[in-house]
Write a protein that binds this DNA or RNA. Structure first.
Lengths: 173, 173
DNA sequence: CCATAATTGTCACTAAGTGTCAATATCGGC
DNA sequence: GCCGATATTGACACTTAGTGACAATTATGG
């Protein structure tokens, strides 16, 4: 991550990363199957945290309220300092290949969250996922993405939760 | 496209495509800067059609209604037969790298459509895009994506416009 | 201490994408 | 039709991501 932030994502080679980590290039590829995974790998775990938070909410709670509450789980991950988070976010939104992988991660979050939303809608679980649940989860994550991008563009000004609420209000208002 | 549909996206090399097109590999890269562009390139033009359709609607019309009407512009593009469209869609949703690029295309559509939605919200145009307009456009395109994926998974059964309406209803209901 | 299994490194390879420069085609003026 | 300027194309070499195969090294357990 240090090399990425210093030199940019594309300008940093796997060779350099391997050298900095004191391992061979081949071993690096065993830990991270793609370069994008080095940046985005930890986001899969974050998705699991959101899933757990969502499943901890009462099933009687409406989908949007439950999702809003579950996404708060992201805020209390103190893994990175604010300026580091901002640097990573700027790289993420400024690097096409990373942005694309970021969407892929979003898809995996979607798969994790859809079953629970489906429960809240009282839908039958057979015959593939319910499009309504998919639409709700996908749009909630889209709102989170819009909020995060706005937050990033303004250099970390404002509250992310509030930006998310504004996005949701615009969509559902 | 024929080679992609016959062999799959990843299994088809730029060398093969160049040979089939009767040009050199280097020239192929001049027409399409990435392999994904060969599949998704034409979608940028489709975005322009949606933009034009959106701008043709009265500005007094609410955002969601205008977007719903503008997206109809996609349906009347008779460029591809239904089964060909289905084949392409299946490849798109089944190939990770294509799926990612597809999202990138969605971002470009977003940029095209946001200014008009911003007008409808009566927002000031200065100081970057309005997050509310971004959220609305992004979620509309997300609903279109969910609808398209559902349509693809069911082998082209059902009406895409209807699936879109159902997705929107679930989100805004 | 040794046999076995897991991890790592080395080497070779495919394929995407880029830079350079010469060859070839295209086009406007005469 | 001819010619000089201008795009377009091809050939070649190169970097880098990612993969496969196999040897070397390092735990691990009895």
């Amino acid at each position: 991550m240090r090399l990425f932030l210093e030199q940019g994502f594309d300008a940093t080679t796997m060779e350099q990363i391997a050298r900095a980590a004191g391992i061979s290039r081949r071993s690096l590829f065993r830990y991270f199957s793609t370069k994008e995974d080095i940046v985005l790998g930890h986001l899969v775990e974050a998705g699991l945290a959101v899933k757990d938070a969502l499943e901890a909410r009462a099933v009687s709670e409406p989908p949007w309220e439950a999702l809003r509450a579950a996404l708060e789980a992201l805020a209390l991950d103190p893994q990175y300092s604010p300026e580091r988070t901002l640097g990573i976010a700027k790289m993420l939104y400024g690097t096409p290949s990373l942005r694309a992988s970021h969407f892929e991660k979003q898809l995996r979050w979607q798969e994790l969250l859809v079953p629970n939303i489906q429960l809240r809608l009282g839908a039958a679980t057979g015959d593939g996922p319910d499009p309504r649940a998919q639409a709700i989860v996908a749009c909630a994550l889209t709102c989170l993405d819009v909020a995060t991008e706005t937050w990033t563009r303004s250099d970390g000004e404002g509250d992310l939760g509030q930006l998310f609420d504004q996005a949701v209000a615009a969509v559902r208002g």
